[in-house]
Nucleic acid binder design. Structure first.
Length: 732
RNA sequence: GGACCCGUAGCUCAGCGGUAGAGCGUUCGGUUCACAUCCGAAAGGCCAGAGGUUCGAGACCUCUCGGGUCCACCA
């Protein structure tokens, strides 16, 4: 063994060794306990960042379970990441002086497909560099044919159960990007805007002043609304207001919703352009078609010189006009939040658009039950409350996206009746009228809709290598891996996507499979820099995991993400810490080297050994026994931590023990007798060290395997070994 | 407005009812003898503040102050 552990000589070779010899490949073994984790699929098109490196927790669990003798599957896949990827591709097009409008739908889709496929390998190799024990033989992509089919089937099932509906709802629409966004994708921007006070004349005499930040939308108003308890306005409720400049008549209505303290206490109601107004108007049975179109231009306002004018410009024109005619009372500055497009920064326009929605009420009810009853257990515990709150507040899910890069919604509109039907297979004839040419919805699914099905969609599509004969009937195909590994054991992901992903997997997963998609959820924290700031390119504090791996080795980077952290807490990562962990890896290596040197020595001095044996040093025997006892305690604690999902604690424990107790104390104390060939001392040190290698292996797989091979047949792996003391120390 | 997390050594963080800890940094002393990517030693803390529970509180409870995150609302 070399003086220093040089990870560069080992990492790639060892990973290839593992992969080629099938150590990552899951089989179906009914005699073993299955343990399965589905890797949250990274964006196929993007490089990994430090957040992805946090999936090391999954590797820790997988490798631990392998050493426990369980049959493990860590399933790897890639996400098409709809909006994100299309955005990246469009930037790429822009560099070439083109845009998405230069292509038809099909060509654009195919181009993005090729673009993604070219880049996909990067991400996969980066996962390998991290040492992840992923089963590459079963890798999946969210746009694989069989996955798409599953997604279609789920949608059909939801549709058949009456949980899918089409509704004219307000969506956050970006008039520049030409697409709508989910609430989750909206970026809030705090600005100082204006509050405009406008006088509306009342037909019966007098006037009422309303305050608004969006004066141009008054042309789409359906009512003026006041609080029924507001004494100032009691007498105008039920009267008729004449909208300035156009003289359209609208009623004054009353609703608790109005806050009397805000503005003047009187509010204009514009159902087509404001989410709250939309809801209130619906309650009162009021509606008026939009006065802003999907390109951001005014329409149907009743004012010829305003129609077809861009909305920002229209606002100025209208204000000038209102002022000119004496309707504008005053303008005051006002702190407000703009909903903006995360892609281009344009202020999003709430616009009514027909979309597909999923009624989540029954789904979330069941999901809440599952979480509350611990059918799905959340680690760390504090996230349980948070998840329940998230589920309780879940509103109906808009799954339509107006982009090309995604799974096209399998919904078809009859040209004759305008009714819709949903079909998993490409229909040959209209299922409504039977003869028309029907048109498929142009929209694609929200990426999270396919992600929500990932656990069962992937497992169902895993082929059993032994029984390739498959039933052609799609609903009745054999799904041995699904049967064996589902529900999966643990879903491990960042706490930031509890809402977007975890909650939806539970809802959809249960709906489709009638069981939980995973038994445990383990959430990791965010990676931050030395100062506790989020890493971002603009701050220039981004640590590239691959650079660090190149410099310090994968084991060091992995260990640095875990060492000294609290479960679910954010991780502060610095180069210093990675360096410290590299030193620890070297320490592991050198303990092995010490043992190796002394083993060969003691075997060459066999004659001396027996002499040594007849003259026992009581001190050393005492130390050997002390070590044995102390290590038994460490083993017990280690396995308890794993049982409690306290992976960082288990690692901290090993770090402290291996370095500061085992190496610094015991080896130093027993050094003399080891070097003079004491068999007892050598054996005990080797036994403990062997077990330590196994216990460290989930965290630092490379160095432990490299050392392991130094003591064993080179064709074997530490991954074949099993914890020896497990029966004594833990109960399953 | 609702919820959650965090204030512990110079810095970044562990500690979850019983003698204040780690990594990095600092100071001093050590390399033929596994490792200088090392070893030994040292300095450095009213554990944010105030009450309370307890024989005993960084730890549990209440409040205050300070930092962060998520959600809701914003005419």
């Amino acid at each position: 063994m070399d003086k220093i552990y040089s990870f560069r000589h080992y990492e790639e070779t060892l990973y290839t060794f593992w992969e080629d010899n099938g150590y990552f490949t899951a089989k179906i073994d009914p005699s073993k306990k299955p343990f399965c984790i589905i890797l949250p699929p990274p964006n196929a098109n993007a490089d990994l960042h430090l957040g992805h490196a946090m999936y090391v927790y999954e590797d820790v669990m997988i490798r631990y379970n392998k050493l426990m003798g369980n049959e493990t599957l860590w399933l790897v896949g890639a996400d098409h990441a709809g909006i994100e990827t299309q955005f990246v591709y469009e930037k790429y097009l822009k560099k070439q002086g083109k845009s998405r409008f230069d292509f038809d739908r099909k060509t654009l889709f195919n181009n993005i497909w090729e673009f993604v496929m070219e880049n996909r390998g990067n991400m996969e190799n980066q996962l390998r560099k991290l040492g992840f024990a992923l089963d590459w033989s079963k890798k999946k992509f969210t746009m694989d044919e069989d996955i798409v089919k599953t997604v279609y089937l789920t949608f059909k099932h939801l549709y058949d159960d009456g949980l899918v509906y089409r509704a004219n709802r307000l969506v956050n629409y970006c008039t520049s990007c030409g697409t709508s966004f989910s609430d989750l994708e909206v970026v809030d921007k705090e600005v100082v805007g204006n509050l405009y006070y406008i006088q509306f004349p009342i037909q019966e005499g007098g006037s009422v002043t309303i305050a608004t930040t969006r004066p141009e939308t008054y042309l789409g108003d359906v009512a003026v609304m006041v609080n029924p308890k507001d004494k100032r306005y009691q007498k105008i409720i039920g009267k008729t207001v004449l909208l300035p400049l156009i003289n359209r008549e609208i009623p004054v209505i009353a609703d608790e919703y109005v806050d009397p303290k805000f503005g003047t206490g009187a509010v204009k109601v514009t159902p087509a352009h404001d989410e709250n107004d939309f809801q209130v108007a619906q309650k009162h049975g009021l509606w008026k078609d939009p006065v802003i179109d999907f390109n951001g231009h005014m329409q149907n306002t009743g004012l010829d010189d305003i129609d077809r004018v861009y909305v920002v410009k229209a606002r100025k024109l209208i204000i000038t006009k209102l002022e000119e005619y004496g309707f504008l009372e005053k303008i005051t500055p006002h702190d407000m939040v703009l909903h903006t497009c995360y892609r281009c920064g344009t202020t999003l326009e709430p616009l009514p658009k027909e979309q597909w929605f999923i009624n989540v009420k029954p789904l979330k009810k069941k999901a809440i039950q599952l979480v509350k009853k611990d059918e799905i257990r959340i680690h760390p515990k504090r996230f349980k409350k948070q998840l329940i709150a998230i589920l309780e507040n879940f509103i109906d899910w808009n799954v339509s996206r107006q982009i090309v890069w995604g799974i096209q919604i399998p919904a078809y509109r009859c040209e004759k009746t305008n009714d819709w039907f949903v079909s998993v297979e490409q229909p040959t004839s209209c299922q409504i009228c039977g003869k028309c040419k029907f048109i498929q919805d142009k929209d694609t699914f929200d990426t999270w809709f396919s992600s929500a099905q990932w656990p069962y969609a992937t497992l169902q599509s895993c082929k059993n290598p032994k029984s390739e004969i498959r039933n052609p009937k799609s609903d009745d195909k054999p799904t041995p891996f699904f049967d064996y590994f589902y529900p999966t054991s643990v879903m491990e992901t960042g706490y930031d996507i509890l809402r977007a992903w975890v909650s939806r997997m539970i809802m959809i997963g249960y709906f489709e499979t009638k069981t939980v998609p995973f038994q445990h959820v383990f959430l990791h924290g965010m990676v931050r820099d030395k100062k506790g700031q989020k890493m971002s390119k603009s701050k220039g504090n981004v640590i590239n995991p691959l650079d660090m791996i190149k410099q310090y080795g994968a084991d060091a980077v992995r260990a640095a993400l875990i060492f000294g952290t609290k479960e679910g807490g954010d991780v502060v990562l610095s180069e210093d810490k990675i360096l410290a962990m590299r030193n620890f890896c070297n320490k592991i290596w050198n303990i092995g080297r010490f043992i190796e040197i002394n083993q060969s020595q003691s075997s060459s001095h066999k004659s001396q050994v027996s002499i040594q044996k007849t003259s026992p040093k009581f001190q050393n025997i005492k130390n050997i026994e002390k070590l044995r006892k102390e290590f038994a305690g460490i083993e017990k604690k280690y396995h308890t931590h794993f049982k409690n999902f306290e992976f960082a604690k288990a690692f901290d424990l090993m770090y402290e023990f291996v370095w500061h107790r085992f190496a610094d104390y015991y080896i130093e104390e027993l050094k003399d007798s080891v070097q003079s060939g004491s068999i007892e001392a050598c054996q005990e040190i080797f036994t403990v060290f062997r077990a330590c290698l196994q216990m460290l292996h989930p965290y630092t797989p490379f160095v432990t395997e490299a050392v392991w091979k130094a003591f064993h047949d080179k064709t074997t792996s530490i991954m074949q070994s099993r914890f020896e003391h497990t029966n004594k120390t833990i109960r399953s």
